[in-house]
Amino acid sequence: MVLPVVAGVDGSAESLAAAEWAAREAVRRERPLLLVHAWNWHPRQEEGEREIANAAQRHLARRSLRQAEDRIRTVCPEVRLTDEQMEGPATAALLKFADQAELMVLGSRGLSGFTGFLVGSVALGVVARATRPVVLVRADEKAADEHLPADNGSPSTDTGYRDVVLALDLSDACDEVIEFAFEAARRRHARLRAVHAWQAPSPIGLGAGDIGLVKEPQRSYEWLGFLKAVLQVWRDKHPDVAVLESVVEDKPTTALVRAATGAGLLVVGHRLAERPVGPRTGPVTHAAIHHVGCPVAVVPHR
Rank of each mutant, 00 (worst) to 15 (best):
M1Y: 11
G8N: 14
S12P: 06
A13S: 09
S15M: 12
A17G: 06
A18Y: 03
A19V: 01
R24C: 03
V27R: 01
E30A: 15
R31I: 04
H42S: 15
E46V: 13
E46L: 13
E46T: 15
G48S: 14
E49K: 09
R50P: 05
E51Q: 15
E51Y: 04
I52T: 15
A53C: 07
N54V: 11
A56V: 12
Q57N: 10
L60N: 03
A61R: 00
R63P: 05
S64T: 06
R66E: 14
R66A: 12
Q67G: 07
Q67V: 11
A68V: 13
A68W: 02
E69Q: 08
D70Y: 05
R71G: 11
V75D: 10
C76M: 08
E84K: 13
Q85E: 15
M86V: 15
P89Q: 10
T91G: 06
A98G: 04
D99W: 03
A101R: 04
L106W: 05
L106K: 02
G107M: 08
S108W: 01
G110E: 07
L111N: 05
S112Y: 07
F114C: 07
V119H: 03
G120S: 09
S121D: 15
S121K: 13
A128I: 05
R132K: 12
R132Y: 01
R132Q: 07
R132H: 06
V134W: 03
V135P: 00
R138K: 15
A143L: 12
E146R: 09
H147Q: 09
H147E: 09
P149M: 13
N152H: 15
G153M: 11
P155H: 13
P155A: 13
D158I: 04
T159F: 04
R162D: 05
V165N: 02
A167H: 01
A167Y: 01
L168N: 02
D169G: 07
L170I: 09
S171Y: 08
S171I: 05
D172H: 11
D175P: 04
D175L: 06
D175M: 06
D175I: 10
E176Y: 07
E179I: 08
F180E: 04
F180W: 12
V195C: 05
A197N: 01
S202H: 13
P203T: 13
G205L: 11
G207L: 12
G207M: 12
A208I: 14
G209L: 14
K215F: 12
P217N: 11
F226S: 14
F226I: 11
Q232T: 07
V233S: 11
K237W: 09
K237I: 08
V241R: 00
E245L: 02
D250S: 11
A255R: 00
A255C: 08
L256V: 14
V257L: 08
V257N: 00
R258W: 05
A259D: 02
A260E: 04
A263K: 00
A263D: 01
G264F: 04
V267R: 01
G269C: 13
A273N: 13
E274N: 12
V277T: 14
R280P: 01
V284F: 07
T285F: 09
H286Q: 10
H286C: 06
I289P: 00
H291E: 07
V292S: 03
C294S: 00
P295R: 01
V298C: 07
V298S: 00
P300T: 12
H301I: 10
